[in-house]
Simulated scan of single mutants.
Amino acid sequence: MRTRLAMRLLLLTSVRTAELRGATWNEIDLKSAIWAIPGERMKMGHPHVVPLSTQAIEILKEIRKITGATAADDYVFPNVKDKSRPMAPTTINAALIRTGFNGERLFRAHGARGTFSTWAHEQGFTPLAIERQLAHVEKNRVSRAYNKAELLPERQKMMQDWGDALQSMSD
C-alpha cells in the first residue's frame, strides 16, 4: 500500500524519486497545499516549491494514517524496516518490474516526469511554468540571475488539472 501511494504521489507531483523518498513532514504544508523541498535535497541545489493538488493532499493524509507519523522530521515514506531511513531507492522501479509494466525497461519512475511535461505542453501551459514545476534551472546565467518567478498561480492550476486528469483515467 505504501509503495502504491508513493507511486501515485510521484505521478501527481512530478518530482524525482529521490525527492519523494526523502520527503519529511516538515516540508509539507497541507493547509496551503504546498510542499517546500529544501535546496540541499534538490538535484541542482535550489529550493523547490511543489503545489499540491487535492488528490495529492488526500494521498498525504492517507500515508500519514498508515505510517503513524507524528514528528515533523518523520519521513513521509519511511523505510519499512527502519523508520529512521527513507524508502529504499529501488522500491518504486522494483514495483513497476513486479507488475510486469517495466519488463523491457521501457518505463522507469523518472519517466513520469516526461509524461507530465508532454501532457502540460499539450494543454497549453507556458513552457516556463512547466520547467519550474520540474525544477529545471534556466541554462542562461543572466536569465537565471534575474528571473526568480515561481509562477505559482499557473502551476497550482496546472497541478490540479493534472490531478483531475489522472483521476479521470482511474475512475
Rank of each mutant, 00 (worst) to 15 (best):
R132E: 09
N140S: 12
A112V: 03
H110A: 09
N79R: 13
H121D: 06
H48F: 09
A72H: 09
R141E: 13
L151P: 00
L106W: 01
L52K: 03
L60C: 07
R64G: 07
T67W: 02
V137R: 14
I37F: 01
A56E: 02
Y146E: 07
T115C: 04
I37P: 06
N140G: 03
R85S: 10
G103H: 05
K43T: 05
Q133L: 01
R85Y: 08
K148S: 12
R144E: 13
T118L: 08
M42C: 15
G39M: 01
P89K: 12
E40G: 01
S32F: 00
Q55A: 14
T99L: 13
R105Q: 11
L30C: 00
S53N: 01
R64F: 01
H110E: 11
R105H: 12
H110M: 08
N102S: 15
R132G: 03
R113Q: 10
I63A: 06
L52M: 13
E154N: 09
G100Y: 11
F107K: 00
L134S: 03
H48N: 05
R41P: 00
I130W: 02
P78D: 07
A33M: 12
K139V: 08
P47C: 02
I66M: 11
T91A: 14
R105W: 08
P51H: 10
E154D: 08
N93L: 02
S53L: 05
A72S: 15
F107H: 12
S143L: 13
T115D: 03
I57G: 02
P127C: 08
T70V: 13
T90M: 15
D82I: 04
T54R: 14
T54K: 15
A145F: 14
G124Q: 09
N140E: 09
G45M: 03
G114A: 15
K139C: 03
A145C: 11
K43H: 08
T118V: 09
T91P: 01
A88D: 15
V142H: 06
P86H: 14
E122P: 06
E58G: 07
Q123T: 00
R41C: 03
H48W: 11
W119K: 07
T118Y: 02
A135E: 01
H46S: 10
G100P: 08
W119T: 07
S117N: 11
L128E: 14
I28N: 02
L128M: 13
E27L: 03
T90K: 15
A56D: 05
A120Q: 04
R85F: 09
L151D: 00
P38L: 10
A33T: 03
V80R: 14
P78M: 07
Q55C: 09
V137H: 02
A71I: 01
R155P: 08
A95H: 13
D29Q: 09
R108K: 10
M44F: 12
P78K: 01
T54D: 12
T99K: 12
E138W: 03
R144C: 00
A88N: 15
K148T: 13
A129M: 08
I130C: 02
P127M: 13
E104L: 12
S117D: 06
Y146C: 07
L52P: 00
K65P: 00
Q55K: 10
N140M: 06
D29V: 02
R98S: 11
V142Q: 07
D29K: 07
L152E: 11
P153G: 03
P86S: 11
K43Y: 10
R155K: 05
S84F: 09
A135Y: 08
R113K: 07
F107Y: 14
R144K: 14
P89R: 14
H136A: 04
A94L: 11
K31S: 15
